[in-house]
Design a protein around this nucleic acid. Sequence first.
DNA 1: AATGAATGAGCCTTCATTCAT
DNA 2: TATGAATGAAGGCTCATTCAT
Lengths: 190, 190, 190, 190
Amino acid sequence: MSDKAARKKQYILDTARTVFAKKGFKNVTMKDIVEACDISRGGLYIYFDSTESIFLECLKQSDTSVADPLKGHSAGDALVMFLNELKKEILTKDNDLSAAVYEYLFLKYSDGASSDYFKERYDAKVNILTGILEEGSESGDLYCEDCALTARNIMYTMEGLKIGAATFGVTEKEVDMHLLYILSGLIVEE
Amino acid sequence: MSDKAARKKQYILDTARTVFAKKGFKNVTMKDIVEACDISRGGLYIYFDSTESIFLECLKQSDTSVADPLKGHSAGDALVMFLNELKKEILTKDNDLSAAVYEYLFLKYSDGASSDYFKERYDAKVNILTGILEEGSESGDLYCEDCALTARNIMYTMEGLKIGAATFGVTEKEVDMHLLYILSGLIVEE
Amino acid sequence: MSDKAARKKQYILDTARTVFAKKGFKNVTMKDIVEACDISRGGLYIYFDSTESIFLECLKQSDTSVADPLKGHSAGDALVMFLNELKKEILTKDNDLSAAVYEYLFLKYSDGASSDYFKERYDAKVNILTGILEEGSESGDLYCEDCALTARNIMYTMEGLKIGAATFGVTEKEVDMHLLYILSGLIVEE
Amino acid sequence: MSDKAARKKQYILDTARTVFAKKGFKNVTMKDIVEACDISRGGLYIYFDSTESIFLECLKQSDTSVADPLKGHSAGDALVMFLNELKKEILTKDNDLSAAVYEYLFLKYSDGASSDYFKERYDAKVNILTGILEEGSESGDLYCEDCALTARNIMYTMEGLKIGAATFGVTEKEVDMHLLYILSGLIVEE
DNA sequence: AATGAATGAGCCTTCATTCAT
DNA sequence: TATGAATGAAGGCTCATTCAT
């Protein structure tokens, strides 16, 4: 029973995701979701009590845990792996919720919610990246004068690419070029 | 008389701006604006027919014309001036409409509107910047291998900084550091 | 001054008539008339205080006083003249207010107003017609057994023709045919 | 359940009919109906989305299918039956929607809608009547020179009676008299 | 007289949410 | 659990009418 319920909940989430993908966040009503799922109004309320809770649950399910376990790799490798993670994050359409996510975040932010989401996401990655750069710097694999600054700079660029991808669209090739461009400034040439 | 009307319209815009700044875009209703302005429901409709039209007019009034006339300067100077323009754009709070703008854009984008705004804003600046870099590259003032790529990369970084500024906040010092970081990669050291 | 006022009032009436002709009665707002006349809102209220008063004044001006002075004619001639009056009334487009008039009358009637307009219009004409028929009957010009009934019957037919003309349109030839048809039933054939 | 819904819908229609009967068409608002039905604003919208749709549905329910199957009767009988149908149509008060119907039709007509309703209603009956008259003419039951013209004439008279009934009121006796009057002009006297 | 900005009542419509079944 | 009818608050919009200028 709880199993059946879980499956139904998942079904709602999957269906709702396509709705959010198409219409964004604020433009989606409970009715939209009810109709897309072909269930009853009341039925939906058994599982969720607002479009927001549905949306957030959708998000939770696409949170690719930012790869931290880069340990055991050389700094150069770790850097490449890390950038590849970001690339995936930028290009993934995960049912194209990205624009809806931005919409949601700015909506909440505008409305006075603290913008921890952006800050935390940014900081977490900056920290990992800084670590990699410092390690590479020490080992001589990489070259950078101010690793923390460089890391922040790279992460801003990634953020910009993400916005670009979520709006006007960015090709994989374009992302690759920028990643190489960044790498080329860090790799110690022999 | 038309003068008085213009002043009233401006009063509404100014008042509405503070409302948008506080509550974002979608969360603002005509009623909110009516109450903030302390005018009648119908009175507002004399001047504007939707929150969107009010919002867009607010935006129009904060359009900082992107400095194009960089002519007559050396590439190095032009670059510095250009980046300073961007810095201003990033840090300006113009009554803090930035988050609302992002919210609006993603809302419209989610709803299927083409996101020309982002694309155009990005492209225009990339073009100017590419021009500066190419000129500097030729004259020997600046160093860059692929000016167009470099320009795009810088602009993505700027976009990221802008998002950061609009959400978790970015200090002027932080912006300066990133601008210097970018410059340091371009300036030919003697 | 009063002369100028009268001219302006007439101008408003003439202009309003075209508006009513195009949009009917209830669909016309003070704003419509103000705009058509290109005068100010307040200006209109100096002369009229509702669309209804304007409409009624328009009507008054197209009231073709039903020709009563048929005296001095033979019954046959009087009948022909009378029917011709009706024909004119049926076919006249007097800027095509007819549909608007019906709309207005039914609107008011539905709303509880007494339907004197219809009753009076009908009765007045029935009386005149009855008189003519009786006279003709006595003089031997015309033939009818129950003049009052015949008159009522003819007037119902006229009313029907008028509805037809006001909605799906009726040609002059069609009207003529029906008038002849009616006449043929009354004229004493030698 | 759908049964209950059907009953509620019917209840709304029945209640709305009394409202339209009292106030006409355009003067009725959704609020009027909501209050008459003593249901909630939103509740009404579950079943209907405008006063117009309610009104039209009311009409549909009083559509007396025009008796076509007059076959198998002598022309004289068919004529009498046909006229009796019309009589019923003229006198029926079906909760007195007639004035509202005229109001509605002229309102729509004024507003530019083609008035097919009148035309079709008129034409359909003219055709049936013409058929009867022709048949009677051939069989010698009836007498008329131009059956089509006669039919149109009679139908105009009926239309006029209907207007009269819908506004100032017409007694059954009056209708009977006119029907007899018409018949007397058609029946071949032996 | 004339203007047209301003008012506020009133209607329309949508939606989240509840609740009897 | 599931249903979907029902509610009522909330926002959008229009219009007749007034009034300071």
